[in-house]
Design a protein around this nucleic acid. Structure first.
Lengths: 158, 158
DNA sequence: CTTAACGTTTACGTATACGTGAAGGTTGTG
DNA sequence: CACAACCTTCACGTATACGTAAACGTTAAG
């Protein structure tokens, strides 16, 4: 397995279908996300097969969560995640520079992004909790009627 | 304002644009949801303007939440909510019958639906919380690097 | 009673997020 | 080195969830 990975580090790679099966995605979706700049495989084989490493899979899992669980559009997801091109660039910038000040800036930038991500997710959680409460209010109204019926009442709608 | 409301009860009605503005929807969306059987206005004016009452607005607000906040498709939303036709039917069945046993059955049925709704929302919340944790793990890894840099280290990636 | 603002239905247009298939190259196991 | 099971890049097709506009009727204020 000869590889064109920039870092040249030997890793365990997965092919696109293996990644897709592991995550419950289709190969088409993964290629589409790449087309949108959401991710790029760590490497390509000599025959230009896409090869994914563990961090690619994690990123994809996160993307899938943002899409399926959080219901974000792919456009929103690219806003929330760093664009893959920018991500690669800043990774390289980090390893290229030895200057702690520059490194600090890069790290701080990423920290800000993570903070934004968890803030947005928390806001969504809060809205969902509001919805659960609303459901429970309705549920308890009905429970009142049920109690009335069980007590021999008519269960009138008030 | 002469109305074709089945119950004939006088209420405060809103027209479609008023409802849309209040909820941040478009009139098109509201009509589309009606087309899919997600809701129907409480009444129509003599000239067949759609007229919405407070419970219509609440139902629409919930639908909007399921779409925007929970990210459900309209197909999933109709699964989760009772189909409007069935809803009207069971409402009428409830008020028509005086039999407490029948009423109990109808109420129990709705209770089950509410339970399903909150369960599904809670499951979504749990998945989002998992995602927040994942973000926080990454965040704290970065914080470690930042601390190293601040301590005069090089902030190496380990 | 006029009329501006609002509504109705019908119908075609469109962005997103893929599905599906064609035409061909790659891998690795026998 | 054959060949089945992968993969590649186009490229066109499609379901969902509306946008938009035409042609026409309704409402309420003056």
């Amino acid at each position: 397995m000869t590889l064109k990975t920039p870092s040249g580090v030997a890793s365990h790679f997965l092919r696109i279908q293996e990644v897709a099966s592991e995550l419950g995605l289709t190969t088409r979706s993964i290629r589409y996300y790449e087309e949108l700049g959401l991710l790029s495989p760590a490497a390509r084989s000599d025959g230009s097969y896409r090869l994914y490493d563990a961090s690619d899979v994690e990123r994809l899992r996160f993307i899938k969560g943002l899409r399926d669980d959080a219901g974000f559009s792919l456009a929103e997801i690219s806003q929330l995640l760093e664009d893959e091109a920018a991500r690669v660039k800043s990774r390289e910038a980090y390893s290229q520079t030895g200057d702690p000040a520059e490194r600090r800036a890069i790290v701080t930038d990423s920290l800000g992004r993570f903070d934004r991500q968890s803030r947005i997710l928390r806001e969504k959680i809060a809205r969902l909790e509001t919805m659960v409460s609303a459901v429970e209010v309705r549920r308890s109204r009905l429970e009142g009627r049920l109690a009335d019926l069980d007590a021999g009442g008519l269960g009138e709608v008030r």
